[in-house]
Amino acid sequence: MTAARGLLRHGLTVYAVCYLSFLYVPLFLLPLFSFNDSIFIAFPLSGFTTKWYVQMFQDDAMHRALWNTVKVGVMASLVSTILGLFAARALTRYAMPGRSVVLGFATLPLFIPDIVLGISLLILMTSVGIPLSLVSVALGHVMLCLPFAIAVLLSRFEGFDRSYEEASLDLGENGWMTFWRVTFPLVLPGIVSSLLLTFIVSFDDFLIAFFLSGTEPTLPVYIWAQLRFPFQLPGVLALGAAILLGSCTVVVIAEWIRSWGVKGETHSHIAGI
């Protein structure tokens, strides 16, 4: 019996390592080939070079696309986090009939294919007469980011003992000062984490921007266009490697911040997405 259990244990560990490799090996290929001195993405590697990175940093169109993406990401993450903050507060603090309906509505974008979200937003923009621009992309991204903002902030507010606020009122503070001195600092990690994660969601989105960006491409739309030209691929690899590194860093920081002050429960909070 113990031998069987031991085998099960080791079998699972081996499996877990294989699974992680399956997740990560494809991602590591981008940085690997981005330093390869060849226009072809193939083995054997033909030598180390940084010319693709140099080429990328000199590409003005890429700079514009990056700047567009950052502008959209900042707008979308700010707005969705503020909206999510109010919503998460309401959903945890007040007894509301229809709470699950609101929650279901807010998480609906996760269950609708991006292409449907993209085309229906395109129909809306043309019907209402909003010109396709970075503003329309940002509007779409607010919707795309809201489920993530609400999930992150909800998990923060759920672990929030209401008597902290009551204690502050009891000690003579009014509602507004209680928010600034108690509530805000305690949910701040959730807010920062939500800002970072929603920024990443917006930064990575391709389809909605594809339909809504008009003549001002975001970075993923720009990359999509480059994919058609084989001689551009090494440049895309360099850009992709930089994006992967950037978003991994931001996500790890976001999750680390999110786990502040929720000792022992950190894993369930990550999993709460």
């Binding site: 003992d161 008597s163 009551e166 204690a167 009122l169 000690l171 305690l186 002050g261």
Partner: peptide, 19 residues
Amino acid sequence: PPNRRPTNMVFQSYAIFPH
């Protein structure tokens, strides 16, 4: 409201501000 009463409370969970 609580902030205008001459009372103070020791909460069951203590509500010691963790930050």
